[in-house]
Nucleic acid binder design. Structure first.
Lengths: 227, 227
DNA sequence: AAGTGGTCTAGACCACAGG
DNA sequence: CTGTGGTCTAGACCACTTA
């Protein structure tokens, strides 16, 4: 593995393990040059790439910092439903339906795992008591080994994961779709009402961290943002 | 402006002006080094960054190529339905239902116009003859004074506008919604089938250039992209 | 064998921030 | 003033593709 790649992974590891906190200063290029015994150009490339991946921010003259997590819009950034509801001045609540290991082959495939299990959670999020999102999530145990021990009525999976790991990339697809009966019941939807459905897969380094299906009642939800 | 940035812009210009076609080979690093009189590392950085931005693809041992068109990104990029269809190797056709001035107060409001008229167009876009998008668009005459004189069966409004003006910012909202009877008929949809609906407003400088509603049959369309 | 991209070095000069 | 990041050079060795 190239030296610049090793340095990138080292930086990510220090962040995910909590040694370097969001907003905090990390060692300078010169210090990393000494630590790894490489040329400055090599360290520079590693840090520059992590900056373009929004893991770091750099300020000429002062230093390199761990990027603060930003929340802007649901589609573009990795936005948290609880924060969105709070931003509207409303009360968020969550009901955990499922939280267990799973060997679903499609999920393993989406996470790039050759063998199981993956972690699986199903949660209904409500705004002022009214269900607004059905979240069906698979999680890579390699990235979040303690996922199953969390209490997701207190902190959403999204918030938990953003807090622990620097998301570098996300793919998404958006559909308008009829929910199945199970989802429809949990979202208190009328028969025939469509869902706005969002599939999203996020990456930490080269690992697919999580693959999630989010179902929203069309009458009570839309996505918005700007570019 | 740094040399690597100048080289990046040069490459993009050659591509946008059609000198270098998607899939085609571009000059090697060595040739660009001679052309610009810089070190190979500088050219390398420019081409590497364009590769990570998916403008180019590189194959060790054979060369650097212009990346083939992507078909994901409708939400983030200001993407053209005709290009998307062409990228799938299919045939695009358009039927113009409306093309005229309009004094609709909501539209004037959305475009920030104190007095009318705005320009209004309604177009149905089809993929291999099957309708896939109903486009209801209002345009700011100040930004595109000759909008009404265009033939939108040849070039889509989107392409026309992107060609003339540099879009700098866009807002969007995405809904899952039932179409009204008029839209449903034009999209050949069954009763009860939902639409994936996208509203978008784009800005050129401080002017709202256009405000558009796009309706898509849920069974034949989804949005995709990555961040 | 020749040409391509992928990586790396050991220097250098610069702009900028903070004490 | 010192330390930081931003850029650049002129070489080098390597892995890979194509002929």
């Amino acid at each position: 593995m190239p030296a610049y790649e090793q340095i990138k992974r080292y930086v990510i590891r220090r962040i995910t393990e909590g040694d370097w906190k969001p907003g905090g200063l990390i060692p300078s290029e010169t210090e990393l040059v000494k630590e790894f015994g490489v040329a400055r150009m090599t360290v520079s490339r590693a840090l520059r790439e992590l900056t373009s991946e929004r893991v770091l921010t750099r300020v000429q003259g002062s230093g390199t910092f761990v990027a603060p997590q930003r929340y802007e819009s649901t589609v573009l950034e990795i936005r948290n439903i609880a924060d969105e509801i709070a931003a509207r001045g409303h009360r968020h609540s969550a009901r955990v339906l499922t939280l267990e290991p799973s060997d679903d082959p499609q999920a393993l495939e989406a996470l790039g795992l050759s063998s199981g299990p993956a972690f699986h959670s199903c949660i209904v999020h409500s705004e002022e008591g009214e269900p607004i999102q059905y979240e069906d999530r698979y999680v890579n145990p390699k990235v979040f080994p303690e996922y199953l021990q969390q209490d997701f009525t207190i902190e959403t999976p999204n918030h938990y994961m953003v807090r622990l790991a620097p998301i570098q990339r996300a793919e998404f697809r958006i559909y308008a779709q009829k929910p199945d009966a199970y989802v429809r019941r949990h979202l208190s939807m009328e028969i025939g009402e469509p869902c706005l459905q969002l599939w999203r897969r996020t990456w930490v380094g080269d690992d697919a961290a999580t693959s999630v299906q989010l179902w929203h009642p069309a009458s009570r939800f839309h996505l918005a943002g700007n570019v």
